[in-house]
């Protein structure tokens, strides 16, 4: 019976990190990198909340993902929280869709009216007395606003945007 010599510590480190088959590990890493590049580059865009306009639903510094493929087969719906591009996609607005194309929308004392019907919004916890005169949305326009309606209207970016500006829906 032959006794094998004790292996040095780095041998176990090598096995733990690289595995028994370095070639297979290299292929596995390459696959992970390609999949991560594809998923996070083209499908799920990571983002971090930087403002307070979506509180309390999304809090400051919370991390989330934008699903760019969410509207490939269907159109944005009322209640969806979406990301809106500016000059590019490095900085995005995070807002909720409350008005759909062709609808008439106004805000009276903080209450939103769509085609003269009050809109039920359970996600709004504080409501400052915002007033916005009636506007009609164009055929490819959506009305977006944050959930934090307790803040002053002038400090809260909201309004109509074109469909092409919507990057995708928030994943979580």
């Amino acid at each position: 019976m032959a006794a094998s010599a004790p292996r040095p510590w780095w041998h176990y480190l090598w096995i733990g990190v690289i595995g028994r088959s370095p070639k297979r590990t290299a292929v596995r890493i390459a696959v992970y990198v390609v999949v991560a590049w594809g998923v996070f580059g083209y499908v799920l865009r990571p983002m971090r909340v930087a403002g307070i306009s979506m509180e309390p639903t999304y809090k400051l510094n919370q991390v989330n993902f934008i699903n760019r493929w969410s509207y490939l087969k269907r159109e944005p719906q009322r209640g969806d929280v979406v990301a809106v591009r500016m000059a590019g996609e490095s900085v995005l607005y995070l807002k909720r869709i409350i008005g759909l194309p062709g609808e008439r929308l106004r805000i009276r004392q903080g209450q939103v009216y769509i085609d003269d019907e009050p809109l039920r919004e359970e996600y709004v916890k504080n409501r400052a007395p915002w007033n916005e005169s009636e506007m009609e949305l164009g055929p490819d326009e959506y009305f977006l606003v944050g959930d934090n309606r307790g803040m002053a209207s002038r400090d809260h970016e909201h309004g109509a945007v074109r469909r092409s500006k919507i990057v995708g829906k928030v994943l979580l």
């Binding site: 607005y93 106004r106 506007m135 326009e141 109509a160 945007v161 500006k165």
Partner: peptide, 9 residues
């Protein structure tokens, strides 16, 4: 300044 959102009016 490019207005990101169209407001009423």
């Amino acid at each position: 300044a490019v207005a990101g959102f169209r407001r009423s009016g």
